[in-house]
Design a protein around this nucleic acid. Structure first.
Length: 580
DNA sequence: CTTTCTCTAAAGTGCACTGTGGCCAGTGC
C-alpha cells in the first residue's frame, strides 16, 4: 500500500539525488514543491493520483502527475529507482553533516569515492579532502567537528520519534494476555529532550512468555538480548528498546529504579539507608531492626511516602533539588497540557507554513484552545517567504475579519520578527505597534562571539514592542549546536523589561533548554510555550513543550498560555504600556 | 519541472557569511 508519507519521501529523495547530479535547480525545486503539495493536500491525494485525477493542482504539472500516478498505483517509480541506482545508499548520511551540501558531496563522491561517513572521516584524516578544489584546512576541520558532533549523538532520537515508537511498543505489549501493567520508564518517562533507548517494564506472572512474544513482534529488526526476564530489541527506525518483566509487587520498585535518573536513584538509596532500609530495583528491605513496610508499597507514591517524601514527578527526578523540596512539601504543582488555553508563534501559508489562517484557527479550536497567535516570518527571512510590510498589514486585516466570525476564540496578529545582526529589528516600531504581539528571533549570523550575541539579543529585548524572545539559542537538537549566548544576562534583561521567553516546543528545538527555567522562574521571567507550528498537525507539538516545562519546574502561574483569553490579552500588551 | 504569457518561450526567492583562491562558489537560513 502506498501511503502519502511514502510519496512525500520519494519526491524529497528525488530532489536530493537530482541535486547530487547537479540538475537544473528549478527542476529540483519542482520536486520539493510537489512533496509539500502532496503532504498538505486536503483529501485523499493518493487515491486521486492512482486514478490520474490530479489536474489543476497548483505545483503538480504534467510530469509529476504521471510520476505520482505510477507511484500511487504500483508503489514504485522507475525514475526514482534508476536515480537511486546511480549512488550508494550510504551517501545520504553525508547530508546530515553541517557544512556539506550537494556540490561538496558530489566532489567528494566523484573525485575521492566517498560513499558515506566512514569514507568521509578517512579522507579528512588522510589529507586527501583538503586537496580537492574548494576544500582547504579550515573546511576539513569543520567537517571533522561535524562528524564528531554527529557521532556523539548517534543512536539518539528526537522526542516525537521516540514517543511514537514507545506508543507502538506499549500497545503491542499491552495486547498480550499475560501482561499486567505496562509502564515506560527511563529518560522517556522523565521527559528528556532526546533519547537513545526506550525502557519498558511489564508486570506479569509469566515472564518467559512475554519475552518470547516481545522479541517476535513484527516491528523488531534485531534481537540484542533475549532472556527470561530481560530482553532488548531494535526497532525499524534504529531505536533500541529494553523490556524487563517483574512481579506485581516488584513493579513500583522496578519502575522507580529504571526511571532514574541515576543521580536521583543514588540519593534515594542513600536516604533509604539512613532510615534503616536498603532500596533496589526489587524491594525496600530493612537492614536491621526497622519494620518491614514493603507490603504497604503498591505504587511509587507509597515508596516516596515511606521515605518521608512527597511524590516526585518523573520529570523532576534529576537530583536537582527535588528531594529537598519533596521533604519540605515545596514541590511545584507542574503545568499540564490541559492547562494551556492558547499559544503563540505559529506559521501559515503566508510564509513557510502549509495551512491557511482559517485552517490553523479551526485546528486550534478543535484542540480546545481559546486563542492562537500567528507569527509568520519577517522579510529578512527571505528563504522562508517572510512577509514584507505590505503583506503583513494585509494579514493583520485578514485576521481582524476572521475574528468577527469567531465566538469565544480569537486569533492574535503577530510576527516572528528577525533580529538583525546588530540587534535591531526587521520591522520599524510603527508597524510593530499595529500588532497584538511580537516574537523576536535570530535566523542568521549565528557565529557571533558570546558577548556580541548577548548584546544583540538584549537590544531586541529592550524594544518595548518585543513581547517574547523566540528559540533563545537557535539549537537544532542532534544537528546544530546552540549559539553562544549568556543566558543569565538575557534572563536579567527579560525580567527587567517584562519580556517573555519562549519555550519552543518543536522536538528539534525545545529551546530555551529546561535546565534554565528554574532560574528564569526565580528571576520572575514568564514562559510562553509555543509549538512553532507550520501545519495544523504541528500544533500538537505543544505536548512536547509541556513535558519540557515540567522538567523546568514550571507551574501554570509561570506559563502565560495558561491565562484566559481576557487575561492574556492584557498580559501581551503590558510591556508596551509601561512605555507609553 | 511548472507557471505564465507578450500563449510553444521565458522566468522562476535573496542575502550574509565563510573559505578558498585570487574576486567567486557553496552553504544555510
Amino acid at each position: 500500500m502506498t501511503t502519502r508519507d511514502k510519496i512525500v519521501d520519494t519526491l524529497e529523495e528525488i530532489a536530493l539525488l537530482l541535486e547530487l547530479k547537479g540538475e537544473n535547480p528549478f527542476k529540483i525545486r519542482a520536486y520539493r514543491t510537489g512533496a509539500e503539495v502532496v503532504q498538505s493536500y486536503p483529501g485523499d491525494i493518493v487515491q486521486k493520483a492512482a486514478d490520474n485525477q490530479l489536474k489543476d493542482i497548483k505545483g503538480i504539472g504534467s510530469a509529476l502527475q504521471e510520476k505520482l500516478q505510477e507511484l500511487a498505483s504500483t508503489g514504485e517509480l522507475e525514475f526514482h529507482k534508476n536515480l537511486r541506482a546511480e549512488f550508494p545508499e550510504s551517501i545520504f548520511e553525508l547530508f546530515d553533516i553541517q557544512g556539506l551540501g550537494p556540490k561538496k558531496i558530489k566532489a567528494l563522491y566523484e573525485q575521492l569515492g566517498v560513499k558515506g561517513l566512514a569514507d568521509l572521516q578517512r579522507v579528512c584524516d588522510s589529507g586527501e579532502a583538503a586537496q580537492l578544489a574548494g576544500f582547504g584546512k579550515k573546511s576539513v576541520d569543520k567537517i571533522r567537528e561535524a562528524i564528531a558532533f554527529r557521532e556523539q549523538n548517534s543512536g539518539c532520537f528526537h522526542q516525537d520519534v521516540a514517543m511514537a515508537s514507545a506508543e507502538l511498543v506499549r500497545e503491542a505489549l499491552q495486547a498480550h494476555p499475560a501482561a499486567g501493567r505496562v509502564e515506560a520508564a527511563g529518560s522517556l518517562r522523565r521527559g528528556k529532550e532526546t533519547l537513545h533507548d526506550l525502557d519498558f517494564i511489564v508486570a506479569t506472572k509469566r515472564p518467559q512468555e512475554i519475552m518470547d512474544y516481545f522479541v517476535g513482534l513484527p516491528f523488531v529488526t534485531q534481537v540484542i538480548n533475549h532472556g527470561s526476564t530481560k530482553s532488548s530489541i531494535r526497532l525499524e527506525n534504529g531505536i533500541q528498546c529494553d523490556l524487563r518483566a517483574v512481579s506485581n509487587t516488584e513493579l513500583p520498585f522496578a519502575l522507580n529504579y529504571f526511571t532514574g535518573s541515576k543521580e536521583h536513584n543514588v540519593a534515594m538509596r542513600g536516604r533509604a539507608l539512613k532510615r534503616g532500609y536498603t532500596l533496589n530495583e526489587y524491594r525496600l528491605a530493612p537492614t536491621g531492626e526497622a519494620k518491614d513496610i514493603s507490603a504497604n508499597i503498591h505504587e511509587e507514591a507509597d515508596l516516596y511516602r515511606a521515605l518521608g517524601l512527597d511524590y516526585i514527578d518523573p520529570a523532576l527526578r534529576e537530583n536537582a533539588g527535588e528531594i529537598e523540596a519533596a521533604e519540605k512539601g515545596l514541590l511545584p504543582r507542574l503545568v499540564e497540557l490541559e492547562n494551556l488555553r492558547g499559544t503563540f508563534h505559529n506559521h501559515t501559508i503566508a510564509s513557510d507554513g502549509n495551512a491557511t489562517l482559517a485552517e490553523m484557527a479551526d485546528a486550534a479550536q478543535e484542540l480546545g484552545l481559546e486563542y492562537l497567535g500567528i507569527a509568520d516570518h519577517s522579510k529578512a527571512s527571505f528563504q522562508a517567504n517572510g512577509l514584507d510590510e505590505k503583506r503583513l498589514r494585509h494579514q493583520i486585516a485578514e485576521i481582524a475579519e476572521l475574528n468577527k466570525t469567531y465566538e469565544g476564540f480569537r486569533l492574535f496578529a503577530g510576527t516572528e520578527c528577525d533580529i538583525l545582526k546588530d540587534g535591531s529589528l526587521d520591522f520599524d516600531d510603527g508597524l510593530l505597534s499595529e500588532l497584538d504581539y511580537v516574537v523576536a528571533s535570530v535566523h542568521n549570523v549565528f557565529n557571533l562571539p558570546e558577548k556580541e550575541m548577548t548584546a544583540r539579543l538584549i537590544r531586541a529585548i529592550e524594544n518595548p514592542h518585543v513581547t517574547m524572545l523566540g528559540h533563545l539559542t537557535g539549537r537544532l537538537l542532534l544537528k546544530r549546536e546552540p549559539y553562544a549566548v549568556n543566558v543569565p544576562m538575557i534572563l536579567d534583561a527579560a525580567a527587567e523589561t517584562g519580556t517573555l521567553i519562549e519555550l519552543n516546543a518543536n522536538p528539534w528545538r525545545l529551546d530555551m533548554d529546561w535546565r534554565w527555567w528554574k532560574l528564569a522562574k526565580e528571576k520572575g521571567v514568564k514562559c510562553a510555550i509555543n509549538p512553532d507550528a507550520h501545519s495544523t498537525r504541528g500544533l500538537q507539538c505543544l505536548a512536547f513543550g509541556v513535558r519540557i516545562a515540567r522538567k523546568g519546574w514550571l507551574t501554570r502561574d509561570d506559563v502565560i498560555n495558561c491565562l484566559s483569553l481576557a487575561k492574556v490579552t492584557e498580559a501581551i500588551a503590558a510591556k508596551r504600556q509601561r512605555h507609553s
